[in-house]
Design a protein around this nucleic acid. Structure first.
Length: 595
RNA sequence: GCCCAGGUAGCUCAGUCGGCAGAGCAGCGGUUUUGUAAACCGCAGGUUGUGGGUUCGAAUCCCACCCUGGGCUCCA
């Protein structure tokens, strides 16, 4: 799961970064050419190219991008040499001040203050001089293939209270072929966009009348979801979990105790008042699950307790961050809370981690990134719970990760104040990482709610509590899955598994008979009896990404067969109905990706 | 929330300078009865996101709001 980069690959990566960063300088030079009043902020290389942030006298238009593209090409043609030089800090400050570049002055002042540097590094190409650490390629001619993609808003230093700048994004590659391949990849990503597929495959939608960030599941999407939930239920039952159900709202005092009103209220919907009591829509399930635990005295004998619920939560998200199913305001967590004794912790962690990975594997997610977020030792005031608990929990997580031979990234200081955690992420087709599963210790809630169990010696003890979500959000998981498969769900998830395509009307009756047979066997089947040509029916089934198309005509009726075409385009020829039915059932039951 | 770009039929989009709101696909009706990715003909479909303003006249210009997209910030 970790990538070992060979030395020459590292060198190539460094060269690519230098090239992209050089492209950013060329962009800045072109911008000053176009708008001499432009104030420059920063222009780093990024994963697929580069950007540069500008403070400009007016808004950029698409035509400006074209003009910048042309000017950049001219600069590249001129093969201007990148010259490195240094300048004492004071001189550099007045240099950039004279040139009306306040952001550069601020950067120098920060360097002076934070790194106490005496002189700064500059790079010059043509007339353009920029504060820059480098490295760069030799001259602008070595910048390679690039394209400016879009403009966007960005804050100076990422701080929304500061000046908003205009960011120009570009992509840059060593060769024209690499560039074209990347542009093709972007097109493909657009085709696989879950929002687009959601509409085309009639899976879900959003309604202006309902509100932004609130998902409406259509029949087909609902079918996929319920299949996912069936699998969730089945696996959790086998995994020793117990199913609970809790309400959608709870009293203000509950959220006061849990601490959510203190540290999560920005993300909570405003309260509703009922009988002079304030109730909040739940942004998390934990306080409710805790109530189940607390409903009676617990004995050490009944631990571990594993409660799970597909609980729909609502969180206020700022309007600009909503993104289809991947970032919604209402979503369903497949939440579980594990309550265990200290001596059970290690085995519980290994068990829950293994459980998560097994299920993700079924969905075809093989490439995962694991992150272990830990506390900062000694900074005890920033964290709830006892130092020894933190150490124990971290050791338990490490042990579980090691036992399963998993590689992970250690994120020191990234833990929440209430406990360390392991997050499992996948990277989507656009290269964006999304968090799926999370396994989090919580030292705060058991303390806040005074959770206890009676130990062997009759004294009250505090249980460990672990939050665990596997899909994370069912909506998000579904969205990622949709993009992952490009809408072509494996048989077990497909909302329609088979479309029967009668060639002419006289074959409709036989088609219906076959459909009834398949349907009785539990296969999800449609018959396309429209008065269309077979080719049109195949095309439509193909576009709907139905796994199997079963063509029936005179020959098939004579043989009691169906002529099977897969959505891959492969033609399987005539199969006996029973044979075909068995094949579909086998693929569905094994949850295989094969057709 | 902020910056920018958008919102025209179910979908994708056109609509010039302010002068009768259009096309393709989907839908519906008919004709056709088809052998592995789009048959043909016809019909219907609109509060031009919503509300206000300017104007003889607004899809088009102005204002406010709603929603969507690209980012920033934040997160499952």
């Amino acid at each position: 799961m970790t990538v070992t980069i060979k030395t020459d690959e590292q060198q190539r990566a460094r060269h690519l970064a230098a090239m992209r960063h050089s492209a950013a300088h060329v962009l800045a030079a072109a911008m000053l050419d176009l708008m001499p009043d432009a104030k420059l902020a920063i222009g780093p290389a990024i994963d697929t190219g580069f950007y540069y942030d500008f403070d400009l006298p007016r808004t950029l238009t698409p035509e400006d991008l074209d003009a910048l593209n042309r000017r950049m090409r001219r600069i590249i043609k001129q093969k201007q040499v990148f010259q490195h030089s240094t300048m004492p800090v004071d001189e550099a400050k007045s240099f950039f001040l004279e040139r009306n570049q306040p952001y550069k002055v601020e950067l120098i002042e920060d360097l002076e203050r934070e790194a106490s540097v005496a002189e700064v590094s500059l790079y010059q190409n043509g007339d353009f001089i920029d504060l820059c650490e480098g490295p760069h390629v030799a001259n602008t001619g070595a910048v390679g293939a690039f394209k400016l993609l879009r403009t966007a808003g960005a804050y100076w230093r990422g701080d929304e209270n500061r000046q908003q700048l205009q960011r120009v994004y570009g992509t840059a590659w060593e060769t024209k072929d690499d560039l074209n391949a990347y542009l093709k990849f972007l097109e493909e990503a657009e085709r696989r966009d879950h929002r687009r597929l959601g509409r085309e495959l009639d899976l879900f939608s959003f309604s202006e009348d309902i509100g932004p960030g609130l998902v409406v599941w259509h029949a087909k999407g609902g079918h996929v979801r319920s299949t996912m939930e069936d699998y969730w239920r089945e696996s959790h039952r086998a995994g020793g979990y117990e199913f609970i159900y809790t309400p959608h709202i709870g009293k203000a005092s509950l959220w006061q105790t849990s601490g959510h009103l203190n540290w999560f209220s920005d993300n909570m919907y405003a309260p509703v008042e009922i009988d002079e009591q304030q109730y909040y829509l739940k942004p998390m399930n934990c306080p409710f699950h805790i109530q189940v635990y607390k409903s009676r005295t617990r004995s050490y004998r009944e631990l571990p307790l594993r409660y799970t619920e597909a609980g729909t939560v609502y969180r206020y998200e700022r309007s600009g961050v909503l993104h289809g199913l991947l970032r919604a305001r209402g979503f369903t967590q497949d939440d579980a809370h594990l309550f265990c004794r200290p001596d059970q912790m290690d085995s519980e962690l290994t068990r829950v981690l293994q459980f998560c990975l097994g299920i993700l594997d079924t969905y075809g997610f093989k490439d995962l990134e694991l992150e272990l977020s830990t506390w900062e030792r000694g900074e005890t005031t920033k964290y709830a719970g006892e130092a020894q608990d933190w150490e124990l929990a971290e050791a338990g997580l490490v042990k579980a990760l090691d036992e399963l031979d998993l590689s992970y990234k250690r994120m020191a200081g990234e833990a929440a104040f209430y406990g360390p955690k392991v997050d499992i992420k996948i990277v989507d087709v656009l290269g964006r990482p999304w968090q799926l599963s999370t396994i989090q210790f919580d030292f705060w809630l058991p303390q806040a709610f005074g959770l206890e169990y009676i130990g062997e010696d009759g004294s009250a003890r505090r249980p460990f509590m672990i939050h665990r979500a596997l899909y994370g959000s069912i909506e998000r998981f579904f969205g990622i899955l949709l993009e992952h498969y490009g809408g072509a769900f494996p048989v077990w998830l497909a909302p329609v598994q088979v479309v029967i395509i009668p060639i002419a009307d006289r074959h409709n009756e036989y088609a219906q008979q076959v459909a009834a047979t398949l349907s009785e066997a539990g296969v999800l089947v449609d018959v396309d009896t429209r008065s269309e040509r077979m080719n049109a029916k195949i095309r439509d089934a193909q576009l709907q990404k139905v796994p199997y198309m079963a063509v029936v005509g005179d020959r098939e009726i004579d043989d009691g067969a169906v002529n099977v075409r897969l959505r891959t385009g492969e033609n399987c020829g005539a199969l006996q109905v029973a044979e075909f039915s068995a094949r579909v059932q086998d693929r569905a039951q094994s949850r295989s990706e094969a057709l």
